[in-house]
């Protein structure tokens, strides 16, 4: 098991190098730092000196990959590639355009992001699985058909409408919770309840339908017939047998996203004004802060790779047939 994990971690290294190279190509080769400086300074203030100053402030005035002028090892390290890309492996992300340290900012914004993401994840999984089981329990009845129609309709609505509609109804018309904002501690509950509810409701459609097909596939198998023949009640069959076996494909989709919960939700956080990583990313995209976007891309891929590893490990835990070798 440990050998497997170590091997998987080693596999992750070339992938991360690939991600790093792609971001480097995207951010420094597609457009030269000069182009970016020109665009960010705006048409009026572009002078060669201003561009040089802008580049020097951000450390973009170095050579791309090879600094022939520097002594010794610095030939390779005193470059944009090393400074901006390789350093990310040590979780050193440098500074954002407003001068703040990105790593510190990420650390302080993780809390609010997780405060939404974790309840959403747990509640969402619970609600969708129960809803799907309910549909399966009433399979081949009007309730099942109605539920599926509802699911298809629900997944055809853009997530934006769930947020806008939910905010309007709950916060404005019914006046139950504040429209947006955030505060630490226990007070946070009243700010979090609406975004959590909205994203759970918005996610039901697609996942419940998918889980329903998984359950239906299991329900026609021999072991389920055997369980019924033994005289087990339908509920017991569903929960003890079908659910357990259908958990395996569900896990693939679910465990991968657990590490990504750190990244927060772009839409929810920006609509509800929650100072998490999602709104940090959106703000960075809006103000074209490339250093932040680059860091988030890297962190996102690291978390995704961790998620894949967790998925494989969780397989062995739920399915004894799977051997990790």
């Amino acid at each position: 098991m440990i050998a497997y994990i170590i091997r998987r971690l080693l596999y992750a290294i070339p992938i991360l190098i690939g991600v790093n190279l792609i971001t480097f190509l995207l951010f420094f080769v597609v457009n030269s730092p000069d182009d970016i400086a020109r665009m960010q300074l705006g048409a009026k203030r572009v002078t060669p000196e201003a561009i040089e100053k802008w580049k020097a402030e951000r450390g973009y005035d170095k050579p791309m990959v090879w600094n022939a002028a520097a002594p010794g090892v610095a030939k390779a390290t005193d470059t944009i590639l090393f400074d901006k890309s390789v350093r990310m492996f040590a979780l050193d992300f440098g500074r954002a355009d407003d001068g703040r340290d990105i790593a510190l900012e990420i650390k302080s914004r993780m809390g609010p992001s997780l405060a939404i993401a974790i309840p959403t994840f747990i509640l969402g999984l619970f609600v969708t699985v129960s809803f799907a089981l309910l549909l399966v329990f009433f399979r081949n009845t009007a309730l099942d058909v109605g539920g599926v129609v509802l699911c298809v309709a629900a997944m055809s609505i853009s997530g934006l409408f769930y947020i806008i509609g939910g905010q309007y109804l709950v916060s404005k018309v019914w006046n139950l919770v504040p429209i947006s904002g955030y505060s630490g501690g226990l007070d946070a509950g009243k700010f979090l309840i609406l975004p959590v509810l909205i994203s759970v409701v918005g996610g039901i459609g697609a996942s419940a339908r998918w889980y329903r097909t998984l359950f239906l596939e299991e329900i026609n198998k021999d072991y389920v017939r055997t369980a019924r023949a033994k005289g087990l009640s339908e509920l017991r069959v569903l929960f003890r047998h079908v659910l357990k076996n259908a958990m395996i494909p569900i896990l693939t989709g679910v465990v991968v996203v657990i590490p990504l919960l750190f990244m927060g939700s772009l839409l929810l956080e920006s609509f509800f004004g929650i100072p998490g990583l999602g709104s940090y990313t959106i703000d960075a995209i809006g103000s074209q802060d490339f250093a932040v976007v680059r860091s988030m891309v890297f962190i996102g891929s690291v978390l995704y790779i961790i998620g894949l590893l967790l998925t494989d490990i969780s397989y062995t835990l739920v399915d004894p047939r799977v051997r990790l070798n």
């Binding site: 992938i15 971001t23 995207l26 457009n31 891309v297 995704y304 790779i305």
Partner: peptide
């Protein structure tokens, strides 16, 4: 490699660069 970058971030990075172009 492409898959391990979260979709929306990759799209955002590419679109930002395209805007500069």
């Amino acid at each position: 490699v492409l898959n391990s970058i979260p979709g929306v971030l990759l799209i955002a990075a590419m679109v930002l660069m395209m805007q500069v172009v």
